[in-house]
């Protein structure tokens, strides 16, 4: 109960403009100085992974939390982005930037095509269809040896060159992902406050009421998948160049499950929740490393315990905010 009160107090804090700018400057300072303070490359690696998962969780949360479609095959978009970018870089000698743009576009189109036949499904059925797509995608990666080099994966992906800088060290990658996370967070914040995002949330809450408000339900459901899939593809591209090699094992079903756990644990439709969930579930196995072989057992048990005590997630979207959104969505549609 105490924790609940603490969180609801924390959630109700509203910063004014100067406080917000100050907060951003402090956070930026911490991020910029982090690689100088942390000398351990392994810790830096974990931080980069945290960044990757924060972005992935945000993109999946857009599909699950905002557009209200339960996708268990997010790894499909993530992996598709990684593989298309890698193939474009290694075989077509394309730059990282262009390759990422193209793979994001292609993945978004694929996401839309995937979404079209599944629009009339909901809940668990949609979850299973997306899960099936993820599984078929992984089998394709494993078996289409000519294209993807099969289970061995594609090695030696060159480091990206962005605006004349070659990004190769852990420090450089850390700054890179920090910028990406910042852009994603900014985008989600703007998206959340836009009429578009609010309308999507209303569709999620009650699609019949949304129809009555004059909101085109199908359009918003489609856009949920398109935007979320595209974002995941971008992060997939980053993952590919960061790791330097990709193989189908990185895009197995367990990854999708991990992402869904992060979304639900953090809180559906909540931006701070996504960050918390992603960082917690990425860092937890590392913190539990001292338990060595027991750590995954403890991890599973903790997931159960957390859901029993906070079933709505750590940082759930508050109802007051939701009502505000509904009113504003209605007004934005009326215009």
């Amino acid at each position: 109960m105490k924790m609940k009160a603490f969180f609801s107090k924390l959630k109700d804090i509203r910063l004014n403009r100067w406080q917000r700018i100050l907060l951003i400057i402090v956070l930026a300072g911490i991020v910029i100085s982090a690689p100088y303070i942390i000398e351990d490359n392994y810790v830096l690696h974990i931080l980069i992974l945290c960044g990757i998962y924060v972005c992935l969780t945000l993109s999946l949360n857009l599909i699950i939390g905002w557009s209200g479609q339960f996708s268990l095959g997010h790894v499909c978009f993530y992996g598709m982005g990684a593989y298309i970018t890698t193939l474009l870089i290694t075989q077509q000698n394309m730059g990282f930037f262009q390759a990422t743009l193209l793979s994001t576009l292609l993945t978004s189109i694929f996401a839309m095509l995937l979404c079209l036949p599944t629009l009339k499904l909901r809940g668990d059925y949609l979850a299973v269809i997306t899960l099936g797509f993820g599984e078929v995608f992984r089998l394709f990666l494993t078996n289409a040896v000519d294209l993807t080099k099969g289970p061995a994966g594609i090695p030696n992906i060159p480091d990206p060159v962005l605006f004349g800088f070659e990004i190769s060290s852990k420090q450089a990658y850390f700054y890179f992902i920090a910028i990406v996370v910042a852009v994603f967070l900014f985008f989600m914040k703007r998206f959340n406050n836009s009429g578009f995002g609010m309308a999507m949330m209303v569709v999620n809450e009650d699609d019949i009421a949304a129809t009555a408000l004059g909101i085109n339900v199908v359009k918003y459901k489609l856009w949920g998948f398109v935007i979320g899939g595209g974002m995941a593809a971008m992060i997939g591209s980053f993952y590919a160049v960061y790791m330097g090699m990709i193989s189908p094992t990185s895009f197995a079903y367990a990854e999708s499950i991990k992402m869904v756990s992060m979304v639900v644990l953090g809180g559906m439709g909540s931006i701070p929740g996504s960050v918390l969930g992603a960082v917690l579930l990425t860092a937890l196995p590392e913190v539990l490393r001292s338990f060595s072989e027991y750590r995954m057992v403890v991890y599973g048990a903790l997931m159960v315990i957390m859901m029993i005590f906070r079933p709505e997630g750590i940082w759930a979207r508050s109802n007051r905010m939701l009502n505000e959104y509904k009113i504003r969505a209605f007004e934005s549609v009326k215009k």
Partner: peptide, 23 residues
């Protein structure tokens, strides 16, 4: 698990249970 978005909470709890048993 009784409150919240029960279906989602149960899902994550079940996934946690699955990880637990497997490991």
């Amino acid at each position: 698990i009784k409150s919240g978005n029960r279906k989602m909470a149960v899902l994550v709890s079940a996934l946690g249970m699955s990880t637990f048993l497997q490991n």
